[in-house]
């Protein structure tokens, strides 16, 4: 029997491949495919009361979602917050990466390590530290009041959309730095010199050569920030207040306090689909845009 399997194994490359892949495959099936399938099926059931679920197949939950103004508003707000976070991160991280890639000659690694140093502490700790900075008695407000610039603390800083955007931007910046740096690092400086040699100003060279060539990194950074932040619920829960609440907080509530698992599952599915659609559109539009640019 063992001899037979040995023969099969030796002859068949597919068997070999699947054997090698099996630990990862099993993990993915158990931790990704099964939960996704469960979520999809639950989104098509009905919560009858606190304890009971009606397992008849229906699309009603999806209709419910779009009939509830709150959910649609929260979905739009989640996208808006993530979009802002992504944009601010890109605008701040890109020049830093550009500088390290083209102007730092020695110890590039040291620069990158120093930039990512804050990210060695836990995500939760970083979120809490922003509470200390942004709070009504936090670093910003108390120093402004002590300096006599303000008489009352700025309230929009804390428990607001602003707080969520600031915190998420900081929390995810490191993840934008790396793909941006890698794509800029790869650009041969002679491309930039060639651009200047062919009569373009520094500014034009940037838009026609450097930026298009760094596009893979830009798209990578967009996806790496946009996807996780749109579904983040820790930061809005801790710093968002009512103003900064996002759809994920609502989904969490449907699975917990409110106990409407099917509607929660439907909301999650809608969110997932939206994120997938947005990433596809964003990468295509960015590519198209740069083609127009050049």
């Amino acid at each position: 029997m063992i001899g037979y399997w040995k023969k099969v194994y030796a002859k068949n490359d597919n068997v070999k491949a699947y054997t090698l892949l099996s630990p990862a495959l099993i993990l993915i099936i158990l931790a990704m495919v099964v939960p996704m399938a469960l979520m999809l099926s639950f989104s098509m059931f009905t919560q009858v009361n606190m304890m009971e679920i009606d397992y008849t197949f229906t699309f009603q939950r999806y209709i419910d979602f779009f009939q509830k103004n709150l959910l649609v508003t929260l979905l739009i707000k989640s996208i808006k917050i993530s979009f802002l976070v992504t944009l601010i991160t890109l605008i701040t991280a890109y020049p830093v990466c550009y500088y390290i890639a083209f102007y730092v000659k020695k110890n590039k690694m040291l620069w990158l390590v120093l930039l990512t140093l804050p990210f060695w502490t836990s995500y939760l700790l970083r979120v809490f530290s922003w509470k200390i900075i942004l709070g009504t008695k936090g670093v910003i407000n108390s120093s402004l009041i002590n300096a006599g610039i303000l008489s009352e603390p700025l309230t929009f800083l804390m428990y607001s959309e602003t707080a969520v955007v600031i915190t998420l931007t900081h929390a995810w910046a490191a993840f934008a730095l790396l793909p941006l740096y890698v794509s800029l690092e790869k650009i041969d400086f002679s491309f930039i010199e060639a651009g200047r040699d062919l009569g373009l100003s520094r500014f034009e060279v940037f838009w026609k050569i450097t930026f298009p060539l760094s596009l893979p990194g830009v798209i990578g950074a967009i996806l790496i920030i946009f996807i996780p932040t749109v579904g983040d619920y820790v930061t809005p829960a801790l710093l968002g207040g009512t103003d900064g609440r996002m759809l994920s907080n609502m989904i969490q509530a449907y699975f917990g306090k409110i106990n409407n698992i099917p509607l929660g599952a439907a909301s999650a599915t809608i969110m997932l689909t939206t994120v997938i659609l947005i990433t596809i559109i964003v990468s295509n539009v960015t590519k198209r845009l740069t083609q127009r640019l050049t």
Binding site: D188, S190, F191, E193, A194, G195, I209, L213, T290, T294
Partner: peptide, 9 residues
């Protein structure tokens, strides 16, 4: 240029 620097995009 030595490496020609043909814009790859």
């Amino acid at each position: 240029f030595q490496n020609y620097a043909i814009f790859p995009h």
